[in-house]
Design a protein around this nucleic acid. Structure first.
Lengths: 146, 146
DNA sequence: CTACAAGTTCAAGCGAACTTGAAGTCAAGT
DNA sequence: ACTTGACTTCAAGTTCGCTTGAACTTGTAG
C-alpha cells in the first residue's frame, strides 16, 4: 500500500489532484488508523490511464465512465484494460482524421475565399453535432439554409 | 460591412463570443454612428481561422499571436494565410504523432505493468517539457531517478 | 521531548473561454 | 407614435480541472 505522497512521486501527479480524483470517484483508497490514505498499487495504473486518456481528449467524467467498467472486486488484468481501449482507440482515430482534414484544409479553405467547412468538407457531421464544451465548436458555413 | 449579427449567423459563433474575441484583439471592427459594430468581410476569415486553430489545440493567446502577423494595412491574401500555417502544420503533426504513440502504448504500457512513459517511449521529452495548462501534463514513470 | 515533514478537511481561488443578465440605445415596420 | 428586435456596455456567473490556504493532526528523526 502507498501513501498519497508515494503515488504523487511515482505518477508525477500532485497530491491535491489525487485527492480530487478520489473525490470524483476515479481512484479509491483505504484509510490507515491515522486517517491517512493508503492506495493499492493498482491505483498507479489507474492514474496512468487518467493521464493518457486526458491527452487523448477525454474529460474526467468520460474517464470515470471507462474506469467504472473495471472489475471492482479484483485487480484488473491486461485483458480488462484492453477492453477499455476500444472507445479510446476509435476516439484517437477520429481525432487524427479531423487533424488531417484541418491540415489539408488550412490553405485550401481559409486561404481561399469560401470559408465554409460544409463546402470544403473539412468537418464531418458528427464532429459538428458533438458541439460540446463551453463555446461553439462548429462552423456552419456561409449559408445555413442552403 | 457586416453587423455583429451577420457575422454571428455566417460563422455560427455567438455574438457574445465575437465581442469577446474583439476585446482580446483577435478581430477588429469599426463603429457606425449609432455605436454599433461594423465588421469588414475579412473578419469572417479571421473567425474561421480562430475556429480551425482552436480545434487544432491552440489557445486564444496563441491564435492572437498568429493573427497579429497578418498585415494590418491591407486585406490578407492567400499567401498571407499560408504563412500562418507553418506553425500550425507542425503542431498538427506533433499532435498526430502523440496520438499514435498513445494508441500504440495503450495496451502495451497500461495493460502491461511498467506504467512508465519513459521506458515505453510513448512520450517524447518535448511533450513533457511543455507541461502546460493548470494541471500536470506529464508522467514521470516508476523511477524518476533511475 | 521537540522539531518538522507529511498527512487531513474544507472553502475559496484561478485561468480559459465564454455566457448571462441588467439596463439602456437604436433601427425598422405598421 | 409605437412596438419589436438588434444592438450597446458592464459586471457577474458557469464549467473544467485543479491549486492554494487555513487550521489542524500524525509520523518520524534526533
Amino acid at each position: 500500500m502507498l501513501t498519497i505522497g508515494d503515488v504523487a512521486r511515482r505518477s508525477g501527479i500532485a497530491a491535491s489532484a489525487l485527492r480530487f480524483y478520489e473525490e470524483r470517484g476515479l481512484i479509491t483508497s483505504e484509510r490507515a488508523g491515522s486517517g491517512h490514505r493508503r492506495f493499492p498499487r493498482a491505483a498507479l495504473r489507474r492514474v496512468a490511464f487518467i493521464v493518457f486518456a486526458q491527452r487523448v481528449g477525454l474529460s474526467l467524467d468520460e474517464i470515470g465512465v471507462e474506469l467504472a467498467k473495471l472489475p471492482p472486486d479484483r485487480a484488473p488484468t491486461g485483458r480488462d484494460w484492453e477492453k477499455l481501449s476500444a472507445t479510446w482507440s476509435s476516439r484517437i482515430d477520429e481525432r487524427i482524421a479531423e487533424l488531417l482534414r484541418l491540415k489539408a484544409g488550412l490553405s485550401e479553405c481559409i486561404g481561399c475565399g469560401c470559408l465554409s467547412l460544409d463546402r470544403c468538407k473539412l468537418s464531418n457531421p458528427q464532429d459538428r453535432a458533438a458541439a460540446k464544451g463551453t463555446g461553439p465548436r462548429y462552423w456552419i458555413g456561409d449559408d445555413p439554409q442552403g
